[in-house]
Design a protein around this nucleic acid. Sequence first.
DNA 1: CAGCATCCGCTTTGATACTG
DNA 2: CAGTATCAAAGCGGATGCTG
Lengths: 210, 210
Amino acid sequence: MRTYGQYCAVASALDLIGDRWTLLIVRELLIRQPCRYTDVAQGLPGVATNLLAERLRQLEGRGILTREAAPPPVATTLFRLTELGEALRPVLIELSRWGLPLLGPSPGQAVFRTHWLSLPLESALCHDPAAGPVTIEVRAGDEPLVVEAADGHVRCRSGAARDADLTLSGPPAVIVGLFYGAFDLAGARARGLVVDGDAGLLDRVRPSRA
Amino acid sequence: MRTYGQYCAVASALDLIGDRWTLLIVRELLIRQPCRYTDVAQGLPGVATNLLAERLRQLEGRGILTREAAPPPVATTLFRLTELGEALRPVLIELSRWGLPLLGPSPGQAVFRTHWLSLPLESALCHDPAAGPVTIEVRAGDEPLVVEAADGHVRCRSGAARDADLTLSGPPAVIVGLFYGAFDLAGARARGLVVDGDAGLLDRVRPSRA
DNA sequence: CAGCATCCGCTTTGATACTG
DNA sequence: CAGTATCAAAGCGGATGCTG
């Protein structure tokens, strides 16, 4: 294994997760675990399949994820983060906070997957416990994303909601900008946001940082 | 520039700072900026000089650091993080929190520089404002490190203190373990810690997280 | 079809030597 | 001091083939 050879907390962290694609694999699992090889690959457009296989092996060997046999009848392999792997969430959150303002107003020729909004949304939002819980479905690209706010916490998951209080559709940057405080509801609508349901329910979630 | 081509906050962050050695350069500047090329190189044992030069150029181009001419009479180039670069501190802090438990009880054949303790110490400690300020000199390797606690904040800087209230000497892991709560004063002494001064002053700084 | 392994050309990195 | 130049080795990306 290639190592920096430094007795330093940052360097030893990077020895384990500093390789190319590695943190993006962790991102996929943080958002959608447990998932199959194919699901990980689908969330990582551009990765070479041999490299993905090698990274998964490395991460397993380093105690960051585990490989488990799915229960019958599906019979496939599922990848899931260990406790050590889950502990990378704050790292990914901070990376996403830093990287979010670097995103341009539109994807351009970059690929976009709706579930990639999960980390930014979870770190940008907090739920007002005084108001009731709220479930929001977000449609910004390939597949919908559900934002569930309750008891002061906000969690995202891939897939359609069966009982959304509210559905938001629009370009990714507008969705993020709305929650991030970059513009208000009217501004977001002017930029392509479509709201289906009681928009007032949006007040139940608020930016968690100024 | 090689890019992941993903419209995702994490991926765009890694596009800018995901290359090998890059975050370690940021670590050096966070701790010791402004510093000269040679200072950065000395804090990054193992880096190839051509690679360091290229990374510094990239980071400058990406708006993460600036190159400035030092005032006479020294006449050298100084590297300093921009606001964008400084904003990486939370990322490095979380990486260091994650990586710290991975460090073994001794450096083994890895290189150690005392100033690398700065990020772990700053994130592990908080100052009790009710108690007075305290200045601690740490000696764990090549050069001393000063820990200054005042007004509820803890800051580290390289170099000797001129008016330390307390001096701690010992192996790196013991210093960290003492502040981290891995063992108490007696345990740390048993593992090689030498305290010069009023050890009671240590109570003025406390672990900030459980 | 899911989950890889192999092969190959290109890019990045590492080690060392040298320079204004 | 602050790099540049050179070259070998390793890593990566893309295509394709194999196996249960």
